[in-house]
Amino acid sequence: MNKTDSIARRILGWKLNRWDRWYDYEKNLFIHDSEFQPEHNLDHAMLIVEKLGMFGYTYTTNGHSEVSFNDVRATGATLSQAITNAAYSIIEKHSSVDSARLWQQLC
């Protein structure tokens, strides 16, 4: 599973409907892989920021290539890449620590 897949499933709560598309139950909408590219599209990355904000994460940025969500920091070549990297770091951090509790919160 790559970063985008992990973020779609574990943060946004989307379900894999087919090998090339997701289903968003909250919006009753199908999203194709090509329509969700958070590392390359800032609007897509901001969906992640919005969702993490709903879970109590505070988003801060330090320019165009560094972001923080509470105590998790990440960098990238662009702001959207930094957001994606930080979100994935949250997933990795909580996967090894109390994963059941976090996923109950996120999903």
Rank of each mutant, 00 (worst) to 15 (best):
M1Y: 09
M1Q: 12
N2M: 03
T4G: 07
D5K: 04
R9N: 12
I11L: 09
K15G: 14
K15D: 15
R18P: 03
R18N: 08
R21E: 09
W22E: 04
Y23K: 10
D24N: 15
E26C: 11
E26D: 15
N28H: 12
L29R: 15
L29F: 13
D33I: 04
S34W: 11
E35M: 00
Q37P: 01
Q37A: 01
P38E: 03
N41T: 00
N41E: 04
N41L: 00
L42M: 10
L42D: 09
A45N: 06
A45D: 04
M46E: 15
L47E: 15
I48W: 01
E50Q: 10
L52I: 05
G53M: 07
G53T: 09
M54H: 11
F55P: 09
Y59W: 08
Y59H: 06
T60D: 11
N62P: 02
N62D: 10
G63Y: 03
S65W: 04
V67E: 03
V67G: 02
S68F: 02
F69A: 05
D71C: 08
D71R: 07
D71V: 04
V72C: 06
V72S: 04
R73V: 09
A74L: 06
T75A: 13
A77H: 02
T78C: 01
S80D: 08
S80L: 03
I83F: 02
T84R: 06
T84D: 08
N85K: 12
A87C: 09
Y88I: 12
I91M: 03
E92F: 12
H94C: 10
H94T: 11
S96T: 11
V97Q: 14
V97H: 12
S99H: 13
Q104T: 09
Q105I: 13
Q105W: 12
L106N: 10
C107N: 15
C107I: 11
